[in-house]
């Protein structure tokens, strides 16, 4: 019996999804590096007046990368939704989640109910994390389940403080959820090698360890690294620096393992999730996460193949 064509691999969309998401990841990384990292920290570099010209250029390039990412997101999300819609019931739930996300983002853009848009975006992200997990064996699914929980916990801070919410503005609850989000988010990063089917080869493990060591050193040495982690990924950075080093090593190892094992789409998906961060920062960052999760969901290995 020949294997049934996998739902996500049929039709025109397959040809588009690959390059579209690869381009998306490249643009998002450029944006992350220039806009959310460089321009946010450049102001603190002393005696850079002389470089104001080049700075302006780099900053504009970063802005452009941002808008390219936005356009690619606007293209990729419907395409991913269509791809998922062609699949089984579980995948179709994913396409519904993307639609709900787009609805929530539209509400936010049009200054509608913040509560509604936040709930829609958090719910959609959690659902997509579930869809991404659903096609995987239990161990491989675990990180995505944890990520869904982390998203809800990180976003609860904002949800809880909306007018009309029960227990509104309870400082202890806010802190509790944020602490939970910190642990869950770190657990997700550390667990991602489970999704990748184990650690990569020794050489790549060394690369991951170097990345972890750099993150550890950065957290120790430069206060700005903590601020960036807070502003870009939603982590408060309140735990010992070593934990963040391990998390960075974990996610790097997972990305490398996915790449060398030929699971490129899933690698890109994980990369997009990492670039977006957890919780609610902006509909832009949430869209990166949603696209990443949808990509992971759309290429789940067919049953029996691992």
């Amino acid at each position: 019996m020949t294997a049934l064509p996998r739902p996500a691999s049929s039709g025109v969309s397959r040809g588009i999804v690959g390059p579209l998401t690869a381009g998306l990841a490249a643009a998002a990384l450029t944006e992350l590096l220039i806009l959310r990292t460089f321009t946010r920290t450049a102001v603190h570099i002393p005696a850079l007046e002389a470089l104001a010209g080049p700075y302006e250029v780099i900053s504009e390039v970063g802005r452009f990368a941002y808008f390219v990412t936005v356009v690619l997101l606007l293209a990729a999300l419907p395409v991913l939704a269509l791809t998922l819609a062609r699949g089984d019931a579980r995948l179709r739930a994913g396409s519904v989640a993307i639609a709900v996300f787009l609805g929530g983002a539209a509400i936010a853009r049009l200054n509608g109910s913040e509560l509604l848009s936040a709930a829609a975006i958090l719910g959609a992200t959690a659902l997509l994390a579930g869809v991404a997990a659903s096609g995987l064996r239990r161990r491989a699914a675990l990180p995505w389940t944890v990520f869904g929980a982390a998203t809800i916990a990180a976003g609860a801070n904002i949800l809880l403080q909306q007018p009309g919410m029960p227990g509104r503005g309870d400082a202890d609850a806010v802190r509790g959820f944020l602490t939970a989000a910190e642990y869950l988010g770190l657990a997700f990063a550390m667990m991602t090698p489970l999704f990748a089917g184990g650690l990569p080869g020794t050489k790549l493990q060394a690369v991951a360890i170097v990345a972890g060591a750099m993150a550890f050193a950065g957290m120790l040495a430069a206060p700005t690294v903590r601020i960036l982690l807070l502003w870009n990924q939603g982590f408060s950075g309140s735990l010992p620096a070593a934990v963040y080093g391990v998390a960075a090593a974990g996610i790097t190892a997972a990305l490398l393992a996915l790449w060398v094992r030929g699971r490129r789409a899933e690698c890109i998906g994980l990369l997009l999730v990492a670039a977006g961060g957890m919780g609610l920062q902006s509909t832009y960052q949430s869209a990166l996460v949603v696209a990443g999760l949808a990509l992971v969901a759309s290429v789940r290995p067919s049953p029996g193949v691992d």
């Binding site: 709900v100 659903s134 096609g135 699914a141």
Partner: peptide, 24 residues
């Protein structure tokens, strides 16, 4: 509506994650 949406969607997500991976 918001609470319903959040609980409904994330509940479905949890169900998929646990049920789905069992199937896998």
């Amino acid at each position: 509506l918001a609470i319903g949406l959040l609980i409904g969607l994330s509940g479905l997500g949890v169900a998929l994650a646990t049920g789905g991976s069992r199937v896998a």
